[in-house]
């Protein structure tokens, strides 16, 4: 019997496909998420929109609050640690977290290196803006990749850019001769062996989810139609005027992402979405997607 192998890490990511992973900050929100049919929750003290507002250093959440959420729901519970902060990750693993998000939403602890994720029994998800970044994270042991998008804005434009970029670079790899793959691996800054696998299979070797800026059922459907295999919703649900109703609507929009009749039905009469900030209007220092190397 072997626990915590790469096979069971990617296995859990497979189980989350076709689902919605919702950011929650307390037990009440976690229950709303579960009752709406969420596939998992992300426990954190402040959702990205509030992290932007408060400023300061954003760190791993208090383990006490994560444990309370774990007790309240039966679906998997995820939590975030800072980029490169392997001690925070060790604490999250010790408390029995189901998935760790090494996240650009928190203030990075290391501006050159990410965590060596193969050392952990808990699986990791990491964000990316392009294929090279995705494959570097997979090389370090990530069991799931997500777009970074621009968290806490309610603006889907960056998530669309990142998903299209990854898919375009995968298609390019598929068209290359084997002689060209080494140079392309060099250009991408990606591990050669994983570049070869992607060129052969035409997809990432781990599930590829969407995150960062999803605010409406239509946003969720858009990302699924662009090739995302599941959707993270951060600020979009609990910064809206009727979180339960919006959570229900986004869950249905992900399952029925190709059915415009369902999308119309669940989009009608929803109360206000989160207010949002145009990602383009953010000064460079406030662009979370730029964090990660």
């Amino acid at each position: 019997m072997e626990k915590g192998s790469y096979e069971v890490k990617v296995g859990l990511a497979e189980m989350l496909k076709g689902g919605v992973i919702m950011d929650v900050t307390n037990v009440e929100q976690a229950k709303i998420a579960e009752d709406s049919g969420a596939a998992a929750v992300m426990a954190l003290e402040r959702i990205p929109a509030d992290i932007r507002q408060y400023g300061g250093i954003a760190r791993m959440s208090d383990p006490e609050m994560i444990l309370k959420i774990k007790e309240a729901v039966s679906i998997p519970v995820m939590a975030k640690c800072r980029i490169g902060h392997f001690a925070e990750a060790q604490i999250l693993e010790e408390l029995g977290i189901d998935f760790i998000d090494e996240s650009e939403v928190l203030t990075p602890a290391d501006e050159e290196n990410h965590i060596w994720k193969h050392d952990f029994k808990a699986p990791f998800v990491c964000g990316c803006r392009d294929l090279g970044e995705a494959l570097r994270r997979i090389g370090e042991g990530a069991a799931m990749i997500r777009t970074k998008g621009e968290a806490g804005t309610g603006d889907i434009v960056e998530a669309v850019r990142h998903m299209r970029q990854v898919n375009r670079e995968i298609r390019k790899l598929q068209m290359m001769d084997k002689e060209e793959l080494m140079a392309e691996a060099k250009r991408l800054g990606a591990p050669f062996e994983i570049v070869q696998i992607v060129a052969q299979k035409g997809k990432l070797p781990v599930p590829n989810f969407a995150a960062g800026g999803v605010a409406t059922p239509a946003d969720a459907s858009l990302m699924m139609q662009l090739g995302a295999e599941a959707v993270f919703v951060g600020s979009g649900i609990f910064k809206s005027d009727d979180p339960q109703e919006r959570a229900n609507a986004i869950v249905k929009a992900v399952t029925y992402y190709k059915d415009p009749a369902v999308l119309l039905e669940v989009s009608r009469g929803l109360k206000e979405a989160m207010v949002g900030i145009a990602a383009k209007s953010l000064p460079e220092a406030e662009q979370l997607a730029k964090r990660g190397w």
Binding site: M1, E2, K3, G4, S5, E7, V8, G11, I97, K121
Partner: peptide, 26 residues
């Protein structure tokens, strides 16, 4: 929790024949 997820070799019996099967438990 997920950290207890495991793989193990199982004893499988199909149509009266015994064999091993790689079980993935998540």
């Amino acid at each position: 929790a997920q950290t207890e997820s495991f793989t193990a070799e199982l004893d499988l019996t199909l149509n009266g024949e015994k064999s091993a099967f790689h079980g993935v438990f998540i």
